[in-house]
Design a protein around this nucleic acid. Structure first.
Lengths: 128, 128
DNA sequence: CTGTATCCTGAAAGATACTG
DNA sequence: CAGTATCTTTCAGGATACAG
């Protein structure tokens, strides 16, 4: 054995540009990942997205899409027609998120049940 | 070409137990992923965690750890000593999160810069 | 059809002070 | 050392009504 004690973690353990920073950046919004899945097969219209995203309001969908557009993950294309038509599509950057998302989904299939069970178990043991 | 139109997405596109659900479940808290990184090499004491997690308050660290304990990702061990000593360690479930986290970090190293640049670009073009 | 304008709510983070 | 107790702020989400 070469290591008997654990080295203490330094105050600069996480550099300012540490990639782990990005996790909350990506995962903070509730609908982002589902929207990406909905756009995976091709561009979709606003009202077309509202169907699979059951329960989302127009306001929240608009906010989420704008936020993703700001991040360069989604391209918004407005057609000069009447009635108006707007299409949303994944950019290459948006498409690059499918990789991490698949990794998280794979984890989920294996372990999310255990996590949820632990959560319930904890509630039973401690109060409510 | 076998597909000229895109199939509309059904209202039940996301089943109730769809793994994509887990992304916000995992990513919603700000400090969770950094805490996991801090516990990767071995168990750590409460005050030991506060060093690398620069800026976190005792309250938020305690809340985060309890939430992770509830989810079965962290094991809390209290030693009957004086002064008190408490150690936090990753459970196997907690350790299983390192996989998805590495995937996200790999994405980050490649693409986070582009995302941040797009965000700034958007701000320059539109107001503020 | 594709949104915006308001108003409201709840959860999490942070600041600060205090305790077994 | 390892937390808890308050208080405040922020902000995403949701409900509802309205508009180009």
């Amino acid at each position: 054995m070469t290591q008997t004690v654990l080295e203490p973690l330094p105050a600069d353990f996480f550099p300012a540009d540490c990639p782990v920073q990005s996790v909350p950046v990506l995962g903070s919004r509730k609908w982002t990942w589902k929207i990406i899945r909905c756009l995976e097969a091709g561009p979709r219209r606003f009202s077309e997205l509202r169907v699979p995203l059951a329960g989302i309001t127009a306001k929240v969908l608009a906010e989420s899409l704008r936020s993703m557009e700001q991040d360069g993950a989604v391209l918004r294309t407005e057609f000069a027609e009447n009635p108006p038509r707007v299409e949303y599509a994944l950019t290459p950057l948006g498409r690059s998120l499918l990789g991490p998302m698949d990794a998280v989904c794979a984890w989920s299939r294996e372990h999310l049940g255990g996590l949820l069970a632990a959560r319930e178990e904890y509630e039973r043991e401690h109060g409510r």
